[in-house]
Each structure stands twice: as structure tokens, then as C-alpha cells.
Simulated scan of single mutants.
Amino acid sequence: MKLYLLLKKSIIRGYKNVKFHLFETDNVLIYWPNFSKGILLLGFALLVLMGHLSWYVLNYHSENRIWLNEDYYDYRVFTTYCQILLTVVVSCITFLFRRNRLFRKFMGWFIPLYFGCLLIYSAQTVGIYSPAAMAGIVNILLIGFVFYQPKVIYSIAVIVTVYVVAICYLTSIDVMPYAPLFSEQLNQSNFYKNEFWMKSMAILYIPILIISALFFEILLSQWRRKEKRIETLSRVDSLTEVYNRRYVSDFLTSLYKSKDSKYSVILLDLDFFKMINDSYGHDAGDEVLRRVAKILKSSMRYHDVVGRFGGEEFILILPNQSLQLAVEIADRCRKAIHNEAMLLPNGEEIHVSASFGVAISENGKTMHDVIREADQALYRAKSLGRNQVCFLET
């Protein structure tokens, strides 16, 4: 029972690790080291080889046996098992010497070459000119050009091309049999009218198609996640997780361009914030800023904007809000900040306060005019003793 639970836990942990590295990490597959890409390729190679072996054995022991070359069966099964064993051995060696820098560099180049040669050998057994073979080769090249640097994939492409040309030439002069996997009866028939051959081409190509689709899905998933994160970072202040000044400016611009939109702006500045940094350290100051940001966000409507305007200064933008209600909201935020016990990293609790300035977009004011009035009102609140809300009479 304990062994079962341990195995179950290991499988779950392994699944979560794979899921994280393929779909949840910000480290996009295309930027992985070639060595790490190679490990992924080895896993896919094993899946393809086992799929081909299963297809071959199942068809041989069915009514489709007449379409397969019985003299070639034992040899092909043996070579496929050898390929699987060799791939497992390569995987084990890769794991054992994974910390060696020169080995990692070599395997980053060798594994995609090995993967390509495995598939080309399989393609030769079903006919190098067959749809499954041609489509598979094209797909592998596309994967290579997307995921690997040109110097790697071009050097591999040269070797693979020589290999393919050699197979084609030897086949054309009857030194190598064409499609030795299939019986003479099938090879002499009209391929495209043979239902077994048509299904075989589709089934043999499907694993390559799935691999290609999976590779690109992994890439796109990681890329979308990275793009989303970049977009978020471009709009959000990393410390406080409220909007940054750039986003605030863009949002105000959009409100200003919408001529019929009225909005209020609240500027607030933490009182004596420099004293907090000097007395308790910058970690304490950062914690205070984060806590204030949370208070502000919890006090706003879902469509209001909370932003960090710089340093210890925050800005609140309230679309379609009157000056009177904006002042009431500012005072509610002021009280919430003043009453909050800020727990510092050292375990000590302190109380802070903030001064607020409020302005509203009226009488054709530009967004710069509104911010300037809010800033003047904030300066007035500070000059009157701090920890209060002010607005300019218009």
C-alpha cells in the first residue's frame, strides 16, 4: 500500500512538473537550451516508435497480413525493438552526463539528427516517396527550423538530405527494395485504390502530425503566456500590483478623447514616508506601499482605476463620478489607511496617514489641467497639516 501511494505521488509530481515546464512556465520552448529540446525529442521518438511497432504487429496478426511482407516481418520487428532500446540507452546516457558542458553541447546537436534519421529509416520501410514519408519529412524540417538555430538545423539538414538522396538512389537502381514493409501484391497494385494502403499512410503519418501539432501548441501556449505577462508588466506596477503611470496616462487620454465622459481624479501622498524608510528600512517602506495599494483597490468600484503615480504617490481615477462623491471616497480611503495597523517585516506594527487632493473634469479642462488641480489640492492638504482631503473651489 505504501509503495502504491509513493508511486502515485511520484506520478502526480512528475505530471505536475511536466505540465509546469511545458505549459505554465514563462521560459518559452523556443528559448530552451538545445539539450533540453533534445530530451523532449527523445520522449516523442519513443512514442512514435512504439506506435509504429503496435501498428505493424496488430496488422500482421489480422486479415491485413496479406498486404505485409512476411519475410520482412521478423527483421522489422527486431530493428524496431533495437531502435526503442537504443533510444532508451541514449536517454539514460543523456541523463547521466547531463551536467557535462561539452556533452550537453554535443547532444543538443546529435539528438535532433538521431530523431530525424530514425524517422527517415521508418519512412524507407513504407516507401520513401509515400505521402506519409514525404509529409513526415516536411513536418520534421518545419519543427527544426522553428525550434533550432539556423547553424544547428542546417548542419543536420545537410546530413539528412544526403541520407534521403542515398536511399532514393539505391532504391532507383534496385539495390534497396522500395517499401519492403509491404507485400509484392500490394506494391504491384494501384496504391490509391487500396484501402489498407490509404489507411496505413494516414495512421503512420498521424503520430508525426500529433508531434508537430503538440510542439506548436506548446510553443503557442508558452508564447501566449509570455505575451500576456509582458502586457501585464507594461500596465502594472510590479511592487504594488496597481496600474503604473503609463497605463494611467493612457486611460486618462482615452477619457479625455471621449468628450462626453466626466471623471474625478484623486491624488494621494503618504505622509512622512521618507521617515518610514529611514527608520525601518526600504523593505518596510515597500510593505507599506503594498498594503496601501490593497486598501485603495478594496475601496474602489470595479471600473475605477488605482495607479501608482510615482514613489509614495497614488492616483485614483473615478469615471462618471461627481466631485462631492469623489471627496467622500477620498475621505473613506484616508480613514481606512489611517486606521490600518501596518505589520512590518520585523513584526512591528505602525500606523501611517495620507493627504488627498481631489479634482474633477469640468468646463473643458484637459487631463493635465485636472491632474494639476488635484496636485494643487494635495499640496494644500499637506500645508494644512496632512492626513486630510482637499479640493479647489471652482
Results as ranks from 00 to 15, higher is better:
Leu318Trp: 01
Gln185His: 10
Lys259Ala: 14
Lys199Ile: 10
Leu233His: 02
Val158Lys: 03
Tyr72Ile: 08
Lys8Trp: 07
Glu349Ser: 11
Ile360Asp: 05
Leu343Ser: 01
Ser189Tyr: 01
Leu58Ile: 15
Arg225Ser: 08
Ile66Glu: 15
Arg229Leu: 15
Ala354His: 00
Tyr72His: 11
Pro33Tyr: 01
Arg225Gly: 14
Lys297His: 01
Asp269Lys: 07
Glu24Thr: 04
Glu328Trp: 00
Gly43Gln: 05
Leu85Gly: 06
Val89Tyr: 03
Thr232Ser: 14
Ser361Ile: 03
Ala330Leu: 06
Thr232Trp: 13
Ser249Gln: 10
Met342His: 00
Ala284Ser: 15
Leu141Lys: 00
Met107Ile: 03
Leu47Ser: 14
Pro180Ala: 00
Val306Arg: 01
Lys262Asp: 10
Asn100Glu: 09
Leu46Val: 05
Phe145Trp: 11
Leu3Lys: 13
Arg308Lys: 05
Tyr73Trp: 11
Tyr192Ala: 01
Glu195Gly: 11
Leu86Ala: 15
Phe20Asn: 07
Tyr15Leu: 14
Lys199Asp: 15
Asp278Trp: 05
Cys117Met: 13
Gly116Val: 06
Gly364Trp: 06
Arg99Asp: 14
Ser383Ala: 15
Val358Ala: 04
Leu102Trp: 01
Glu231Gln: 12
Ile173Ser: 09
Arg332Pro: 02
Ala284Arg: 04
Phe251His: 07
Val160Thr: 06
Ala166Leu: 12
Ile337Leu: 04
Gly51Glu: 01
Lys257Glu: 13
Asp74Asn: 13
Leu239Glu: 09
Phe103Arg: 08
Gln321Ile: 05
Gln324Ile: 10
Leu209Asn: 10
Tyr379Lys: 00
Ile337Thr: 06
Ser200Ala: 15
Pro112Trp: 05
Trp32Ser: 11
Ser355His: 03
Ile12Gly: 00
Met1Trp: 15
Phe23Cys: 09
Ala284Tyr: 02
Ala179Tyr: 06
Gly357Asn: 11
Tyr178Ile: 08
Asn363Arg: 12
Phe196His: 04
Val288Asn: 03
Arg224Asp: 13
Ile156Pro: 00
Ser353His: 00
Tyr192Phe: 15
Glu184Gln: 12
Lys228Thr: 12
Asp286Pro: 05
Leu252Arg: 00
Val265His: 03
Trp223Lys: 12
Pro33His: 11
Phe78Arg: 12
Phe251Gly: 02
Phe95Asp: 06
Asp271His: 02
Thr87Asp: 00
Tyr121Glu: 01
Phe23Ile: 08
Tyr163Met: 11
Ile153Pro: 02
Tyr4Val: 14
Glu231Trp: 03
Gln388Leu: 10
Gly307His: 00
Ile266Asp: 05
Phe314Glu: 00
Met342Gln: 07
Val152Lys: 02
Glu63Gly: 11
Ile84Glu: 03
Pro345Gly: 04
Ser249Asn: 13
Pro180Val: 05
Ile140Asn: 06
Tyr4Ala: 14
Ile84Gln: 03
Arg246Asn: 05
Asp375His: 03
Lys257Asp: 13
Phe44Ala: 04
Tyr256Phe: 14
Thr366Met: 08
Cys168Met: 15
Met107Asp: 02
